[in-house]
Simulated assay, not measured.
Amino acid sequence: MDAIDRSLVELLQGNARLSYAELARQVGLSAPAVHERVGKLENSGVIRAYRAEVDAEAVGRGVTALIGIVEDSGGDTDDVLETFRSMPEIESCYFMAGRESFLLKARVGTIAELEHLIVRLNRTPGVASTRTGIALSTKWENRPQPITPPTA
């Protein structure tokens, strides 16, 4: 990635709905050249998706929980992950260093729904235990990170 690609990625992180003409104006290229560059960034996997950022509370998912998962030593990690993937309440899954193997970010509508999710997680073959924290509020999330050039 060169400096123009980094600029394009940063601009799209800020507003993925920018037109090729507007992107071109901001980076000093033609719209067709920007279209080609963005296509290459998509094909190479640098740009993985475009999404609408939705207010979780407005769509009935106002409870956010972070759930640490301790794996059972006899469990199959791939099976555990597939089970997590099938649960629509789980928004993110991170593989962790330390006692807990995974950290899940879940969004549900009510505390009762969170309780139901935790029970399902604890009944999952390969899960030894869970530890849950409930977010009281979200100050920010999904903040775009600057795309800095690699250090030599």
Rank of each mutant, 00 (worst) to 15 (best):
V63L: 14
Y94I: 03
Q13G: 03
H116E: 14
Y20C: 01
C93T: 14
W140V: 00
G126R: 05
P150L: 14
D55E: 14
P146A: 02
T77M: 03
S129N: 10
S137I: 05
V46H: 12
R61A: 09
L66D: 08
I69M: 02
V70Q: 11
D76F: 05
D72T: 14
G98N: 07
A112E: 10
S44L: 12
Y94L: 07
T77Y: 01
R143W: 07
N142T: 03
R123P: 00
I111N: 11
L117V: 06
R51P: 03
D79Y: 03
A112K: 08
W140D: 00
A24Q: 04
D76I: 08
E115L: 00
M96F: 01
E53T: 13
Q145F: 02
A31I: 00
A52T: 07
L136C: 09
V108L: 12
V27K: 13
S7Q: 14
H35L: 12
L66K: 09
R17Y: 04
I47T: 09
I4F: 03
Y20K: 04
Q145M: 13
P146S: 06
L81E: 07
R51Q: 14
E71H: 01
L8D: 15
A152R: 10
L114K: 05
V108W: 06
D2K: 02
V59Q: 10
T110Y: 13
L114Y: 08
G62C: 10
L81Q: 06
E57Q: 15
P32Q: 05
L18W: 00
R25H: 12
V119Q: 05
E42T: 09
L114M: 08
K105I: 12
P32T: 04
H116S: 14
E82M: 07
I69P: 01
G126Y: 04
P144N: 08
S92G: 07
R37I: 08
S30E: 02
T64C: 13
S129K: 11
Y50F: 14
E82C: 02
S7R: 15
I111Y: 11
G39T: 15
E53P: 00
S44W: 12
R99Y: 12
E22Q: 10
L117D: 04
E36P: 03
G62W: 11
L103S: 07
S137A: 14
R120I: 01
V127D: 05
L136W: 11
E91L: 14
T151V: 10
R25G: 11
E89G: 12
R51Y: 09
E100N: 01
L11H: 10
T130R: 06
D2M: 02
A152D: 12
N43P: 02
L29R: 15
L12F: 01
A58R: 15
T132L: 08
R143S: 13
R131Q: 10
A52R: 11
R107I: 05
S101T: 03
A65H: 06
G75M: 05
L11M: 14
N43E: 15
E115H: 07
A33D: 08
G133S: 09
V127C: 04
G45V: 12
L66R: 10
A16R: 12
T151R: 11
R61P: 01
A16D: 06
G98H: 06
V70E: 11
I67C: 03
A56V: 00
V127W: 02
